[in-house]
C-alpha cells in the first residue's frame, strides 16, 4: 500500500496518513467485569485477516475507517464512521 483514499480528500500518498489501530467496540464499563475490561484495554486480534481500522489524514485532520487485509495490505473500502456505506470508496477506487 502506497496510496490511501481519504473519504474527504481522495487518493493521497500514504505518508499523509497515520494509522490509528483497529476499530473496536468496548464492553459496557458499568457492567463488565475487571477481567473483561483488562482484556479490552490490552488484548488485540493480532492474527492476520480483514480488519476494520482507524486511519487519520493528517493534513486535513480527518479520522476515517479503512477496511484492510493485514496479510496482503490491500484496502477494500474507506469511509467516514457512520456514513452511508453506499458512498464509500470501493475496492477499485481505493486500490488505484
Amino acid at each position: 500500500m502506497k496510496l490511501l483514499t481519504c473519504p474527504m480528500n481522495g487518493t493521497r500518498p500514504l505518508s499523509e496518513f497515520i494509522f490509528g489501530g483497529e476499530y473496536r467496540e468496548g464492553p459496557d464499563q458499568n457492567t463488565c467485569t475487571d477481567a473483561e475490561w483488562a482484556a479490552f484495554v490490552h488484548n488485540r486480534s493480532g492474527a492476520p485477516g480483514d480488519k476494520k481500522e482507524w486511519w487519520y489524514h493528517s493534513p486535513s485532520g480527518t479520522w476515517f475507517i479503512a477496511e484492510r487485509n493485514t496479510l496482503t495490505d490491500k484496502v477494500s473500502r474507506t469511509y467516514l464512521l457512520g456514513a452511508n456505506n453506499n458512498n464509500s470508496n470501493t475496492a477499485q477506487e481505493a486500490s488505484k
Binding site: 482484556a39 488484548n43 493480532g46 492474527a47 492476520p48
Partner: peptide
Amino acid sequence: FTPRITEMVDLETPIVI
C-alpha cells in the same frame, strides 16, 4: 507468527505484528 498460533488455542494476547 505468535498471533496465528495463539489463535489456534483461543488465547488472547496484546501482541500485534
